[in-house]
Structure formats: C-alpha cells, structure tokens
Write a protein that binds this DNA or RNA. Structure first.
Lengths: 147, 147
DNA sequence: TTAATCTCTATCGAACCGGTAGAGTATGCC
DNA sequence: GGCATACTCTACCGGTTCGATAGAGATTAA
C-alpha cells in the first residue's frame, strides 16, 4: 500500500505537468485535486528539497516542475515521499538493512521470492514517467477542440 | 514493505512444510527461525483460523499444515496477515475502497500505473507456492548425504 | 501598504507495529 | 491423580507512523 501522501505527491506533480502556464499555486492544486491544502504544502516543500519542483513566493507565486515530466518517474517521487520501493528492508537499495532473524540471507526463501516482486515493481515504477502516464483531462480536451 | 509478522508467518509455514514429521511445536519453530515465541503463537493461531494450519494440544502437541505446500501460496498467507495485496485501496479485490479525492476513478492516472504494479505483484505472489520456493537446508542436506 | 503566496515548526489523535504477560485449557504419561 | 508440556485466549504496552491541522513568519507584486 502506498501512502495517501505519496498519492497526493504524484497527483500534484501531474497537475503541474498538465498545467498550461507550467506553474500553479498550492491552493489551486489543492482545490483541483482534492488535497488538504496544509498537507500539500508540506509535500511540495519536500519535493522542492529533492529538486523535483521549484517555488516562487509572493503574490504571483506558485510551484513549477524543475525538470521535464519525461524525466520524472513514479519511482523517484515514491522514494522521496514513502521511502524505499522494496517489499523487504533487506532488498532495499537505498536503505538496506539486514534482517535480525535471518542467519543466511542468501538462503532465505522469502527474500528470493520478494526479490522478483521488487524487480517487477521497480521495472514499472522507474520505467514510467509522469508524462507517460499523463492524459488530457476533459476540460483540456474541450479547449483543444475549441482552439 | 511487508510486515515482520507476514515474514514470520511465511517462515513458519515453510518450516512446517520442510519438517520430516509434518508437525512442529511453536517453541521449535520459534527457535529454528528466530521468531519471538509469544508473537509466533498469535500468528499461528491466526493462520489456524484461516485454515492454513491445524493444531494439537498437550504433551505431543504442535502445528501442522492443513493442505499440501503446493496448495499454499505466498499471496494467501500475505492476505491473511497483512491484508490486501494491493498498492492502493481502490485496487484491492478483497477490500476495495473508493478514494475520497478521486472524482473519476477511470480517469485516475495514478491508479492506472499502480494497476499494472498490482497485476505483476499478484502474478508472482499468487503463482508461487510454499513448496515451489522451498529448498533443503544445510542440516537436511547433511542428513540426506548420511542416510 | 496590502493581499497573496510560500516557509517553517509544532502539535495532535488515531491507528498500527512488534511484541510481552499471564491465566486458562487440553493432552500424554507415570 | 498429578505433573509436565503443549496450545488458547485476552489484555496490554511503548513506540512509530499516518494524515492531517495550526499558526506565526517571510517574501513578493501591484
């Protein structure tokens, strides 16, 4: 299960990727995506610290993506918000931790099975960019048709 | 991340599958697999309620598998102990819950990406039985060679 | 100067996690 | 019968995480 926070983060980043001006205020995103505003503030700040988004303060302020949506993957966002993308700590690449109950890691059947789960999951999450998963919203389709 | 509890459950079931007599006492499993005994009690009781194992009380008591190891999958154990095998509640088959923040589920990009993660994960976990992942331990290899 | 915006730190209740405690009950064996 | 060895059941507990909420502060445009 991914956290609510991670889901909000993904939605927010996608909203930025979709926006015409490339910039949106927190309250705009919060409203559009049904995310509690104060919670979203924290999330975006976190994404900013990790170089995913940039911010501008003041009256015409807001958030924008730092890189193109093609370069941002689901895996990247998830690791920032939820931590390791691994079903077991002993399978994490960024936060490996030995299991206290395993005498021999190489001999652990559980680990072997979950290693393939991890591999499959990573293939998808690190292989899917924000833009790849994006598709226009109804409103936007409307404006495209009109334009 | 799967819980420690689920990992213990899998290890315990595998220990039973591996055992010669087909039956083991809680304390035996706890010792062999480095699992806190009182915690393991709860786990096995839970597995018993779900028809995975059966118990016998008293002096010659212990736990045994209810079905053959070929019929028990990783997914089955995980669902009992950790709940749904799904990255999002809106993708769970056994415990579906609508997301409060989604106006249209069919239009949710996050959901679409994680649907494929769920599919890949289930393919592995529901396709791998306890016996399939099993392999003899050193001790057992020794006794096989000796016998 | 004012209004809108991001920034930062603190706090909070509820749930979950990983376990521990202990009294109770069944069974086998002498 | 009595005892040792199991499983059974309920309760509890400290710590952490989750999903927020609160509010004061800093920055900027107009």
């Amino acid at each position: 299960m991914i956290s609510q926070k991670a889901k909000y983060a993904l939605k927010a980043v996608m909203a930025l990727a979709r926006s015409d001006a490339g910039q949106l205020a927190i309250s705009q995103i919060a409203e559009d995506e049904n995310i509690p505003k104060k919670f979203l503030e924290q999330i975006l700040l976190d994404l900013k610290y990790h170089g995913i988004v940039a911010s501008r303060r003041g009256k015409a302020g807001g958030y924008a993506l730092c890189k193109s949506p093609e370069e941002i993957t689901f895996g990247e966002i998830l690791r920032i918000v939820d931590g390791p993308v691994a079903p077991l700590a002993c399978l994490s690449r960024i936060a490996y931790r030995r299991c206290a109950d395993c005498t021999d890691e190489a001999d652990c059947e559980v680990r072997r099975v979950f290693a393939s789960v991890a591999e499959a999951t990573r293939a998808i999450l690190d292989g899917t960019s924000i833009s790849a998963s994006l598709r226009p919203r109804e409103k936007k389709i409307g404006s495209l048709l009109a334009g």
